[in-house]
Amino acid sequence: MSPAPDERDRIRAAMHRILAGTPEHSNGALTIVALAAEAQVPRNALTQRHPDLKNEFYDKVRARGQTPDSEKRLRQQVRKLKELRAADAEELRQLRSDNQALVGALHQSVMENRQLRQQLAEQPRNLRVLPNQPRPSGHGTRE
């Protein structure tokens, strides 16, 4: 599909209306989507057929000291991702610390167990095995 002959003029007029704060066909956001809606052209008209007009729009937005809405959203997302990354790094640091403490506790338990087993093996005379006694019927069993 070939572009309408007045497509560039419609995009420039839409650009002017959005920057003036008087949109007629869009929400007036400083985005390519809003610009395409305002110009009543498909979005790809700006991204594929007229990227120079897309760049011109963003340049004019920046020249006014404003930030395009898409850039604001990306900056907000980057900020949130950095916060999540910092939280993950803190959690990882805590997990590593907990892991070291658990390894230490396990090592201590293994050493104590080894020591107790050694004591048991060295001093079997301190232990005496009691003979098995038959249980009276009806106690401790279910029928």
Rank of each mutant, 00 (worst) to 15 (best):
M1T: 01
G138N: 06
P136I: 13
H25V: 00
N126V: 02
P23Q: 09
V61W: 05
G65A: 10
M1S: 12
S109W: 02
M111G: 00
Q66I: 02
S2N: 06
D52E: 15
D6E: 09
R12L: 15
I11V: 15
T67F: 00
Q94D: 09
A37D: 10
A39D: 03
L84D: 13
Q66G: 02
R10H: 06
R135S: 15
P134H: 08
H107D: 15
V33T: 15
M15E: 09
Y58D: 03
N126D: 09
R125M: 00
G140A: 11
T22I: 10
R114S: 11
Q118N: 07
I18W: 11
F57P: 04
F57A: 04
L116D: 02
Q119T: 11
P23Y: 11
R73K: 13
L92D: 14
K54R: 15
L84K: 09
V33A: 14
H16R: 13
L120W: 05
A86T: 15
S2G: 12
H139L: 13
H50S: 02
L30V: 07
E56I: 00
V33H: 11
T22Y: 10
E112L: 12
P124E: 05
R8V: 14
V129W: 00
E7L: 00
R8T: 15
D52G: 06
N126F: 08
R135Y: 10
E112V: 11
P68S: 03
D52C: 02
L19Q: 09
R17N: 06
R128D: 01
V33Q: 14
G28A: 04
A101W: 08
T31I: 10
T141K: 13
R49D: 11
G21K: 05
P5F: 01
H50I: 00
R142H: 07
R93H: 04
E71W: 15
L81M: 04
F57T: 02
Q40I: 00
R43Q: 01
R142M: 01
V41R: 03
L95K: 14
R93G: 01
E38L: 02
V129D: 01
R10L: 12
P134N: 07
K60S: 07
N113W: 03
H107C: 04
L116M: 06
